Simulated assay, not measured.
Amino acid sequence: MIKRKKDKFSEMLMDIAQNIKDSAEFLGSFELQNVSDLKEFANVLKAYESKGDKYVHTVITELNKAFITPIEREDILQLAMSMDDVLDGIDSFAALMEIHSITTFDEYVAEFVKNIQGCAEEILITINLLSEKKLLQISEHAIKIKEYESHCDTLYRRALKQLFATCKDPIKVIQYKEIYETLEEIADYCQTVANNLESVIMKNA
């Protein structure tokens, strides 16, 4: 059978989702060893974020020109913008690491990153299913994204409790609290993507 070509909006959303996955993979794989590595770390993740901005701009431009869209144009825009928020969050995290000259992931940051990578993987799967119009299969993956977000909520509370109980340096407390908050926000942005996908399912399945 001839495989039907994806419409241009599906291709655009896939580009954004793939960029999120690539960004999350780099986030977890780059080995920080010293302060000088932080610049490269932040610059590469900024490049992913900038690429994402260009993808979203293209989506907006094409939506303004399109007469017919595969799903409601507002849903396409919301999906694109919510995925872009994930990239913005990852970029913000990398910037904070550089600003605070933190060169190692503690156990909590490492676990946050693993959950964010899980979200990124599921987002790519869901957007691919959307492009193939397999709407009813999206739900199980949207649920997985929400489970990762729930894990991050629990992790955030554990991390703060440990931080306040053991760290005596007020500057370090402020720095790590900000980092944990940013990571938890990234998970929240992933959940928003899942919520937007569920809204699409309700309208179109």
Rank of each mutant, 00 (worst) to 15 (best):
Q78A: 15
A80N: 04
A80V: 05
D84V: 05
D84M: 05
D85S: 14
V86A: 06
L87V: 09
G89H: 12
I90T: 09
D91M: 05
S92R: 13
F93G: 04
F93N: 04
F93D: 04
A95M: 10
A95H: 13
L96F: 04
M97A: 06
E98M: 14
I99W: 08
I99Y: 13
I99V: 15
H100T: 08
I102V: 15
T103H: 03
T104I: 13
F105S: 00
F105A: 03
F105Y: 15
D106A: 07
E107V: 08
E107P: 00
Y108Q: 07
V109P: 03
V109W: 05
A110T: 12
F112T: 09
V113P: 06
V113M: 06
V113Y: 07
K114D: 13
A120T: 08
E122G: 06
E122Y: 14
I123C: 04
L124R: 13
L124Y: 14
L124K: 13
I125E: 11
I125G: 00
T126N: 06
T126C: 15
I127T: 14
N128S: 06
L129F: 12
L129Q: 12
K134C: 02
K134R: 14
Q137L: 14
Q137V: 02
I138C: 09
E140R: 14
H141A: 06
A142K: 07
K144P: 02
K144L: 12
I145H: 04
I145T: 02
K146H: 08
K146W: 03
E147P: 00
S150N: 14
H151R: 12
H151A: 14
C152L: 07
D153Q: 10
L155A: 08
R157N: 13
R158N: 15
A159Y: 03
L160T: 08
F164S: 02
A165F: 12
A165N: 12
K168T: 09
K168I: 00
